[in-house]
Amino acid sequence: MTDAEKRSAVEPFQEALKRNGLQLTREPTRTLQVNAGLACGLSCGHCHLEAGPDRREVMKRETMEEVVACARRFSFAGIDITGGSPELVPGLDYLVSSLAPLTPLLIVRSNLLDLERAPELVELYREMKVVLVASLPASNASQTDAQRGAGVWERSLAALKRLNALGYGVEGSGLELDLVSNPAGAFLPAPQGGAEKKFRADLARKAGVSFNSLYTFANVPLGRFRGFLERSGNLDGYLSRLSEGFNPCTVGGLMCRSQICVDWRGRLYDCDFNLAAGLPHGGAAGSISELAELPLPGTPIPVGDHCYACTVGSGFT
């Protein structure tokens, strides 16, 4: 049990699993997630990693080479580069151009604003057919700016328009642009289908912007978002809302079962949230350079109360 769980008002996640006759264990690994660092041009209120402009933790070239060697050693169906803001990591072009030939699906997550300042990376992404996943919490200015900072809505729309002009998010271009929406507060996300329909209509009407798919995810009670929950008196209520909505059917499809996550130091985790919670893969700090074989199916995955965010409602898969 984590320290946070000891203080928590809800049933420990491990107990909820047990009560439902479930265990959270690994399946064959299909995806490599690369957290390239915590530097970010924004300090979003929902960020579980507390990324921001004052963070200096970024992946060094040596670690990137270890990541590339790992991708060469194993066959990953997908590689997912995230942060922080990957665009702020020196040498990202090396990482992207080295990983792209090694996987059928290379994803880069972006806050849009830092991508605007790196047109050469956009060109590289186009060339490598990188799938871009961009954060946009809402289809309106007030909620977007409340979560991500003043003026972010307008600048995000400008960035999306430019990506559309380059073919990203435009039907038939072969360049995929997906959006991710996290709620702008201590409430659950809207169901994905309805939200995607609304985003598509709102963004087309307000800015002539198009995209491929929208994903809605619950905010994870870690890092800066947990701080907000504590300060605003929402922590117990939010955790209760997550745990009351626990859906045992989501456990089978959780992403942590089939991906391995490596951070900027080369350390291994089952997911980005366990990285933020300080819960390493296998329960002990391991390094990507020492990864001789992929995790064995059946290996237990460490859990905490943050896991309720991935198992509420239709889940986070």
Partner: peptide, 11 residues
């Protein structure tokens, strides 16, 4: 809460 969770905004 329901409106926010169904995807409505404050406007």
């Amino acid at each position: 809460r329901a409106c926010l969770e169904k995807g409505s905004n404050l406007g």
